[in-house]
Structure formats: C-alpha cells, structure tokens
Amino acid sequence: MTLAIFTVLAVISVITALLVVFSKNPVHSVLYLIVTFFIIAAQYILLNAQFLAVVHLIVYAGAIMVLFLFVLMLLNLNQDTEPQKSSAWKLSAAVASGLLFITLIGALKGSSVAIAASPNPEVGLVKNLGNVLFNDFVVPFEIAGILFLAAMVGAVLVGKKDMAV
C-alpha cells in the first residue's frame, strides 16, 4: 500500500516536472511546479517528516511560487512568446542530461546503503528537530539569519527603480 502510494506520487510528480519544462506558457509552468511541490510535501509526510512537509508547503508553495507568479504577472510574460532554442541545442541538452542521469545511476547502483536496523520513527517531529537545531546547529542557524537579512537588503536594493548609490 505504501509502495503504491509512493509510486503513484512519484510518477505524477515526474510528469508534472516534465510539464514544467515543456509547457510553452510560463504561468502553466509555475502552476505545474506548485503541483510538484505539493507532491513532494506528500512524500515528506510519507517519510514521517511532518514538520518538514509543513515548512515546505509554507516556504515553497506559499512564498517562493507566489513570488514567481507575481514577477511573471508584473512583467506581463503570461503569453507564450518565448523564443525557442535551436533543435540541435535541445538535442544536445537532452543528451547531456541523459548522460548525467546514466552516470549518477551507474555510480549509485553498486553502492551499498547502510540502513539503520531500527531507526527512531520520531526523528522528523517538531520536538526532536527543534532540539537538534537549537543545540547542535545554533551557529549555522544564526548565519542563515544573517544570510536572509543580506538577501533581503540585496533584493530591495537591486529592485529599486533609481539606483542612486
């Protein structure tokens, strides 16, 4: 049953990811990407990473994709006027990504993955994650905060109309 759910979700998300790449209209791409993110959130729930699933939904589907859609509407790009790359370029891109896929699969095929005998099933719950984040990862957490501040200031500065600097 779990395997069936996993497989169905995986197949749907691969199809929607392909539609993100292949759809002509950028708005459709954004909407398909939102579907993909929802399915990835469902995969997190399947992995019992519940807090991660909720944060993923809030950050990606709630913030980042709204930002993308907003910029798309702001720039009035919601029609399929995108110039296409030449078919030779597309073919070489397909070959390149296919070769990357084959290489990664081939490299990972023979590797033996050590799975814990009885992993703690509550590893993805808020209590456990909070303990780890604020005990072992306090300094990276603070640095991430500084990174966010810098990104925010940078985004505002770049987006300003008159760069009077």
Partner: peptide, 14 residues
C-alpha cells in the same frame, strides 16, 4: 529527507 528518515538521524532534515 529520505536518508534522514531511513538512518534515523535528524541532521539530514536540518
């Protein structure tokens, strides 16, 4: 996240 769950280690999710 998958490896984090399978290994029972929260560091992957962090």
């Amino acid at each position: 996240a998958a490896f984090s769950t399978y290994l029972g280690d929260a560091q992957g999710q962090i």
